[in-house]
Computed example of a mutant assay.
Amino acid sequence: MTSLYGDGGSGKTLLALSLMVAMASKYQSLWLGEKPLGWKSVGLFAEDDEAELVRRLQRICRAEKLEFAAIAANVTALSCAHMDATLATFSGGGGELIITPLMQGLLDRVRHEGASLLVIDYAAAVFGGNEIDRNQVSAFLRWLNAIAGQEQISILLLGHPSTSGMATGGRGTSGSTAWRNQARSFLHLTVDDTQNDPEDRRLLTLTLSKANYARAGRVFRLASDGARFDILADEASGPRRVKGPRIPASQKVALNALHEAISNAGEASPGGPIPAGVRVVRVDAWRPYAYSAGISAADTGEARRKAFQTARQALQDKGLVGISDPWAWVVEAGA
């Protein structure tokens, strides 16, 4: 499950629809310069009515020189603009997660269509719990991640950041931090109002601020005319992947968590035994990232603590991670 957050009107829905069209085009159209896998997709849209969704899809097809009828056969865009779009609630106001008939019907549609992508637009409209309650948010997103695995699909969840999230430079969070921590990848779309485009297009920045299975920190500078997105720059600003010996899954989780912790809360080397120029993070700040990423199959504090301690020591012994209490850093290949 990937989360795509952005301010209202920034273009999140258009970006999601563009992905659905690129998939349906069977490689005739690219999305952010890539060929997305899979052909069919299903999307639930809580804000746009059916007529608006059709207009947007038609504009995208015209811009990409694609036949709308051929694309429409592989795109299922469902509007809930004038309906209750709740997909999950909680018993007793905060107990067990309850999946609504709408969500069950949505999954039935995914199976019927043979879709490989489910788009949900947007988080606050479909979540029937308290969005600042970490336990409720975590339960909902864990369930979405489980569904993605069981159905062998990708899920793209769109959302609006809170006021503080809009000011965090690429994090784009909203409510509980679980909205970000439980997503396997997190994209943040912002409008660039500081520059003007000679073709009068809207300038945007899309940041991959979290990626469990890729390198975080990739930044796209985009221009949109309301129908397509042109890439002005593609910047890979995240930490380089560590090359070294094969490592077990728990150690990979810990290493990826360290990359993410440094990306979000890293500091410059304080000197001493720590090499100059590296970014460091406190071990106590690294640990929660590893816990959130699922370093232990057992969901108990003691099991997670032991799993983290074992992985941390193994990574240090292999020369992949440097530790000088209280600091930790990634040892780059050749360093």
Rank of each mutant, 00 (worst) to 15 (best):
F220H: 02
A81H: 13
T2F: 06
G334W: 05
E199N: 14
G334Y: 05
G165Y: 00
D192L: 06
A139P: 08
E267R: 14
P36T: 02
M1Y: 03
R109C: 15
D200F: 13
T163Q: 09
W31H: 05
A333N: 13
S292N: 11
A268S: 14
G271N: 00
S3A: 12
R246C: 04
R134S: 13
H188M: 12
A115I: 00
T100R: 07
H188I: 10
G217I: 14
I71M: 09
I71A: 08
I99M: 15
L87R: 03
K306I: 07
G165L: 00
R240Y: 10
L187P: 03
N212K: 15
P36H: 00
A268P: 05
A139I: 06
N212P: 11
W39D: 11
R282D: 01
K35N: 11
E199M: 13
R241E: 15
S292C: 04
R240T: 13
R312T: 00
H112L: 10
L30N: 09
R171W: 04
W31E: 02
E267W: 08
L4Y: 12
W31R: 02
F229R: 12
G277N: 14
S324F: 01
R202E: 09
W143I: 02
D317R: 11
L37R: 11
Y289H: 07
V331L: 05
E131D: 14
